[in-house]
Protein backbone atom coordinates (compact mmCIF):
# COMPACT_ATOMS: atom_id res chain seq x y z
CA UNK A 1 0.00 0.00 0.00
CA UNK A 2 2.74 2.38 1.02
CA UNK A 3 4.80 1.42 -2.02
CA UNK A 4 1.86 1.89 -4.32
CA UNK A 5 1.02 5.37 -3.08
CA UNK A 6 4.66 6.33 -3.24
CA UNK A 7 4.87 5.13 -6.83
CA UNK A 8 1.73 7.08 -7.66
CA UNK A 9 3.14 10.20 -6.08
CA UNK A 10 6.36 9.73 -8.00
CA UNK A 11 4.48 9.24 -11.26
CA UNK A 12 2.46 12.37 -10.63
CA UNK A 13 5.64 14.30 -9.84
CA UNK A 14 7.24 13.13 -13.08
CA UNK A 15 4.27 14.11 -15.23
CA UNK A 16 4.28 17.49 -13.57
CA UNK A 17 7.97 17.96 -14.23
CA UNK A 18 7.48 16.99 -17.84
CA UNK A 19 4.51 19.33 -18.14
CA UNK A 20 6.49 22.19 -16.67
CA UNK A 21 9.38 21.62 -19.02
CA UNK A 22 7.33 21.86 -22.19
CA UNK A 23 4.82 24.63 -21.65
CA UNK A 24 5.65 27.92 -19.93
CA UNK A 25 3.12 29.61 -17.72
CA UNK A 26 2.97 32.54 -20.11
CA UNK A 27 1.70 30.34 -22.94
CA UNK A 28 -0.78 28.67 -20.60
CA UNK A 29 -2.20 32.00 -19.52
CA UNK A 30 -2.54 33.24 -23.09
CA UNK A 31 -4.10 29.98 -24.18
CA UNK A 32 -6.64 30.00 -21.36
CA UNK A 33 -7.31 33.71 -21.76
CA UNK A 34 -7.21 34.32 -18.00
CA UNK A 35 -4.63 35.36 -15.45
CA UNK A 36 -5.58 33.84 -12.12
CA UNK A 37 -4.30 36.04 -9.31
CA UNK A 38 -4.23 35.11 -5.64
CA UNK A 39 -4.98 38.20 -3.57
CA UNK A 40 -6.06 39.08 -0.03
CA UNK A 41 -9.79 39.53 0.46
CA UNK A 42 -9.71 41.24 3.83
CA UNK A 43 -6.67 43.47 3.71
CA UNK A 44 -7.64 47.05 2.97
CA UNK A 45 -6.31 48.80 0.95
CA UNK A 46 -4.32 45.99 -0.70
CA UNK A 47 -7.26 43.70 -1.33
CA UNK A 48 -10.72 43.64 0.29
CA UNK A 49 -14.39 43.23 -0.54
CA UNK A 50 -15.90 46.54 -1.57
CA UNK A 51 -19.06 47.38 0.34
CA UNK A 52 -21.05 48.59 -2.67
CA UNK A 53 -19.98 46.29 -5.49
CA UNK A 54 -19.24 43.24 -3.26
CA UNK A 55 -16.21 42.66 -5.47
CA UNK A 56 -12.63 42.27 -4.31
CA UNK A 57 -10.77 45.52 -5.00
CA UNK A 58 -7.51 47.11 -3.89
CA UNK A 59 -4.00 48.18 -4.78
CA UNK A 60 -2.77 44.69 -5.58
CA UNK A 61 -5.81 43.89 -7.68
CA UNK A 62 -5.03 46.96 -9.80
CA UNK A 63 -1.42 45.80 -10.22
CA UNK A 64 -2.65 42.40 -11.42
CA UNK A 65 -5.20 44.08 -13.67
CA UNK A 66 -2.36 45.95 -15.32
CA UNK A 67 -0.50 42.69 -15.97
CA UNK A 68 -3.63 41.00 -17.32
CA UNK A 69 -4.32 43.93 -19.65
CA UNK A 70 -0.76 43.76 -20.93
CA UNK A 71 -1.22 40.10 -21.74
CA UNK A 72 -4.59 40.82 -23.29
CA UNK A 73 -6.34 38.34 -21.02
CA UNK A 74 -9.07 38.49 -18.41
CA UNK A 75 -8.20 38.76 -14.74
CA UNK A 76 -9.61 36.20 -12.35
CA UNK A 77 -9.33 36.90 -8.64
CA UNK A 78 -8.93 34.19 -6.01
CA UNK A 79 -8.75 35.04 -2.33
CA UNK A 80 -5.78 33.62 -0.45
CA UNK A 81 -4.53 33.94 3.11
CA UNK A 82 -0.99 34.21 4.40
CA UNK A 83 -1.00 30.47 5.01
CA UNK A 84 -2.55 29.34 1.72
CA UNK A 85 -0.82 31.62 -0.79
CA UNK A 86 2.37 29.60 -1.33
CA UNK A 87 0.72 26.16 -1.55
CA UNK A 88 -1.85 27.57 -3.96
CA UNK A 89 0.89 28.89 -6.20
CA UNK A 90 3.01 25.73 -6.14
CA UNK A 91 0.02 23.54 -6.88
CA UNK A 92 -1.00 25.83 -9.74
CA UNK A 93 -4.42 26.99 -8.56
CA UNK A 94 -3.21 30.57 -9.07
CA UNK A 95 -0.77 31.96 -11.66
CA UNK A 96 0.49 34.83 -9.56
CA UNK A 97 0.31 35.84 -5.93
CA UNK A 98 -0.15 39.50 -5.06
CA UNK A 99 -0.94 39.20 -1.41
CA UNK A 100 1.31 41.45 0.68
CA UNK A 101 3.97 38.77 0.51
CA UNK A 102 7.47 39.56 1.69
CA UNK A 103 10.27 38.49 -0.60
CA UNK A 104 12.23 36.17 1.65
CA UNK A 105 15.17 34.04 0.65
CA UNK A 106 13.78 30.97 2.41
CA UNK A 107 10.64 31.24 0.28
CA UNK A 108 12.81 31.08 -2.84
CA UNK A 109 13.08 27.33 -2.34
CA UNK A 110 9.41 26.94 -3.22
CA UNK A 111 8.54 29.82 -5.53
CA UNK A 112 10.10 32.71 -7.44
CA UNK A 113 9.58 36.40 -6.85
CA UNK A 114 9.30 39.47 -9.06
CA UNK A 115 11.24 42.62 -8.23
CA UNK A 116 9.91 44.56 -5.27
CA UNK A 117 6.65 46.34 -6.07
CA UNK A 118 5.97 47.72 -2.64
CA UNK A 119 8.38 48.65 0.16
CA UNK A 120 7.32 47.85 3.66
CA UNK A 121 8.74 47.66 7.12
CA UNK A 122 7.41 45.74 10.08
CA UNK A 123 5.91 47.93 12.80
CA UNK A 124 3.52 47.75 15.72
CA UNK A 125 -0.06 48.98 15.90
CA UNK A 126 -1.03 49.93 19.43
CA UNK A 127 -3.58 51.94 21.34
CA UNK A 128 -2.46 55.55 21.66
CA UNK A 129 -1.21 56.27 25.15
CA UNK A 130 -1.31 52.60 26.07
CA UNK A 131 2.32 52.60 27.15
CA UNK A 132 3.76 50.54 24.33
CA UNK A 133 6.25 52.33 22.11
CA UNK A 134 8.90 49.84 21.19
CA UNK A 135 9.45 46.14 20.87
CA UNK A 136 11.07 46.14 24.30
CA UNK A 137 7.75 47.20 25.88
CA UNK A 138 6.14 44.00 24.62
CA UNK A 139 7.79 41.76 27.21
CA UNK A 140 5.09 39.64 28.84
CA UNK A 141 2.37 41.03 26.56
CA UNK A 142 0.17 39.43 23.92
CA UNK A 143 0.85 40.34 20.31
CA UNK A 144 -1.49 39.53 17.44
CA UNK A 145 -0.33 38.50 13.99
CA UNK A 146 -1.39 36.28 11.10
CA UNK A 147 -0.68 32.60 10.53
CA UNK A 148 2.10 31.87 8.08
CA UNK A 149 3.38 35.45 7.98
CA UNK A 150 6.96 36.64 8.33
CA UNK A 151 5.89 39.11 11.02
CA UNK A 152 4.93 36.23 13.24
CA UNK A 153 8.44 34.79 13.11
CA UNK A 154 10.22 38.17 13.26
CA UNK A 155 8.48 39.35 16.40
CA UNK A 156 9.15 36.13 18.25
CA UNK A 157 12.83 36.54 17.39
CA UNK A 158 12.90 40.24 18.28
CA UNK A 159 11.05 39.81 21.56
CA UNK A 160 11.14 36.23 22.86
CA UNK A 161 9.27 37.28 26.01
CA UNK A 162 6.01 38.14 24.26
CA UNK A 163 3.19 35.74 23.52
CA UNK A 164 2.31 35.71 19.82
CA UNK A 165 -1.27 34.84 18.95
CA UNK A 166 -1.81 34.10 15.28
CA UNK A 167 -5.14 34.65 13.58
CA UNK A 168 -6.25 33.78 10.07
CA UNK A 169 -6.24 37.41 8.98
CA UNK A 170 -4.83 40.74 10.21
CA UNK A 171 -8.23 42.39 10.64
CA UNK A 172 -9.08 39.61 13.10
CA UNK A 173 -5.90 40.49 14.97
CA UNK A 174 -6.91 44.18 14.95
CA UNK A 175 -10.37 43.29 16.22
CA UNK A 176 -8.67 41.40 19.04
CA UNK A 177 -6.59 44.53 19.75
CA UNK A 178 -9.69 46.73 19.78
CA UNK A 179 -11.39 44.40 22.21
CA UNK A 180 -8.27 44.36 24.39
CA UNK A 181 -7.48 40.70 23.80
CA UNK A 182 -3.99 41.52 22.56
CA UNK A 183 -1.81 44.53 23.40
CA UNK A 184 -0.40 45.13 19.94
CA UNK A 185 -0.68 43.94 16.37
CA UNK A 186 2.49 43.55 14.41
CA UNK A 187 2.99 43.42 10.69
CA UNK A 188 4.02 45.69 7.83
CA UNK A 189 3.41 49.41 8.30
CA UNK A 190 1.09 49.90 5.28
CA UNK A 191 -1.14 47.04 6.40
CA UNK A 192 -1.25 48.54 9.88
CA UNK A 193 -2.10 51.94 8.41
CA UNK A 194 -4.84 50.26 6.40
CA UNK A 195 -6.24 48.58 9.51
CA UNK A 196 -6.12 51.83 11.43
CA UNK A 197 -8.00 53.60 8.65
CA UNK A 198 -10.88 51.11 8.80
CA UNK A 199 -11.65 52.04 12.38
CA UNK A 200 -14.36 54.53 13.18
CA UNK A 201 -11.92 56.48 15.35
CA UNK A 202 -8.53 56.09 13.63
CA UNK A 203 -6.97 58.68 15.95
CA UNK A 204 -7.22 56.21 18.83
CA UNK A 205 -4.51 54.04 17.32
CA UNK A 206 -0.95 54.62 16.29
CA UNK A 207 1.67 52.85 14.24
CA UNK A 208 4.87 52.75 16.23
CA UNK A 209 7.93 50.69 17.04
CA UNK A 210 11.60 50.69 16.26
CA UNK A 211 13.08 48.68 13.44
CA UNK A 212 11.98 45.04 13.45
CA UNK A 213 12.47 43.93 9.86
CA UNK A 214 12.32 45.08 6.26
CA UNK A 215 9.46 43.56 4.36
CA UNK A 216 9.80 44.22 0.64
CA UNK A 217 6.77 42.85 -1.22
CA UNK A 218 7.33 40.79 -4.35
CA UNK A 219 4.80 39.13 -6.62
CA UNK A 220 4.90 35.38 -6.08
CA UNK A 221 5.56 33.42 -9.29
CA UNK A 222 5.94 29.72 -10.05
CA UNK A 223 9.44 28.34 -9.56
CA UNK A 224 11.83 28.22 -12.55
CA UNK A 225 9.85 29.90 -15.29
CA UNK A 226 12.14 32.70 -16.37
CA UNK A 227 10.14 33.83 -19.43
CA UNK A 228 7.16 34.46 -17.21
CA UNK A 229 9.24 36.19 -14.56
CA UNK A 230 10.93 38.39 -17.17
CA UNK A 231 7.55 39.45 -18.46
CA UNK A 232 6.29 40.33 -14.98
CA UNK A 233 9.45 42.26 -14.07
CA UNK A 234 9.46 44.18 -17.35
CA UNK A 235 5.78 45.02 -16.93
CA UNK A 236 6.31 46.30 -13.39
CA UNK A 237 9.13 48.59 -14.56
CA UNK A 238 7.07 49.81 -17.45
CA UNK A 239 4.24 50.46 -15.05
CA UNK A 240 6.56 52.64 -13.00
CA UNK A 241 8.06 54.48 -15.98
CA UNK A 242 4.72 55.23 -17.60
CA UNK A 243 3.41 56.78 -14.40
CA UNK A 244 0.68 54.14 -14.10
CA UNK A 245 2.17 52.96 -10.81
CA UNK A 246 1.98 56.45 -9.34
CA UNK A 247 -1.64 56.70 -10.45
CA UNK A 248 -2.63 53.43 -8.81
CA UNK A 249 -0.60 54.31 -5.71
CA UNK A 250 -2.34 57.64 -5.50
CA UNK A 251 -5.73 55.96 -5.75
CA UNK A 252 -5.14 53.76 -2.71
CA UNK A 253 -2.46 55.58 -0.68
CA UNK A 254 -2.66 59.17 -1.94
CA UNK A 255 -3.47 62.15 0.28
CA UNK A 256 -7.19 61.89 -0.55
CA UNK A 257 -7.40 58.16 0.09
CA UNK A 258 -8.56 56.53 3.31
CA UNK A 259 -5.04 55.43 4.07
CA UNK A 260 -2.57 58.19 3.14
CA UNK A 261 1.01 57.02 2.93
CA UNK A 262 3.72 59.11 1.32
CA UNK A 263 5.57 57.44 -1.56
CA UNK A 264 9.22 57.80 -0.53
CA UNK A 265 10.51 54.90 -2.52
CA UNK A 266 11.68 54.21 -6.04
CA UNK A 267 11.30 50.94 -7.85
CA UNK A 268 14.42 49.12 -8.93
CA UNK A 269 14.69 49.95 -12.64
CA UNK A 270 16.92 48.11 -15.03
CA UNK A 271 18.27 50.19 -17.87
Amino acid sequence: MKKLSFALALLAACTMLAGAAFAGKLDDIKKNGVLVAGVKDSQPPFGYVDEQSKQIVGFEIDVCKYLADKLGVKLEIKPVTSATRIPMLTQGSVDIVAATMTHKIEREAEIDFSITYFPAEQKLLVKKGGGIKTVADLAGKKVGSAKGSTSEKNIQAAQPKCQVISYDTYPMAFLALKQGKVDAVTTDAPILAGLKATDEKPEMWEVTGDFIADEPYGLGLPENDSDYRDFVNASLMEMWRSGEYAKIYDKWFGPKSKCPLELKWKMELWP
Partner: peptide, 18 residues
Protein backbone atom coordinates in the same frame (compact mmCIF):
# COMPACT_ATOMS: atom_id res chain seq x y z
CA UNK B 1 -8.90 31.74 17.16
CA UNK B 2 -5.22 31.12 17.72
CA UNK B 3 -5.26 28.24 20.21
CA UNK B 4 -2.13 26.26 19.50
CA UNK B 5 -3.59 22.78 19.27
CA UNK B 6 -2.42 19.86 17.15
CA UNK B 7 -4.03 21.10 13.92
CA UNK B 8 -2.66 24.61 14.48
CA UNK B 9 0.83 23.22 14.93
CA UNK B 10 0.56 21.07 11.78
CA UNK B 11 -0.48 24.23 9.91
CA UNK B 12 2.42 26.16 11.44
CA UNK B 13 4.96 23.52 10.48
CA UNK B 14 3.53 23.56 6.96
CA UNK B 15 3.96 27.32 6.68
CA UNK B 16 7.41 27.37 8.25
CA UNK B 17 8.96 24.48 6.38
CA UNK B 18 6.55 23.89 3.44
Amino acid sequence: IGVMDLTYMARQIESHTF
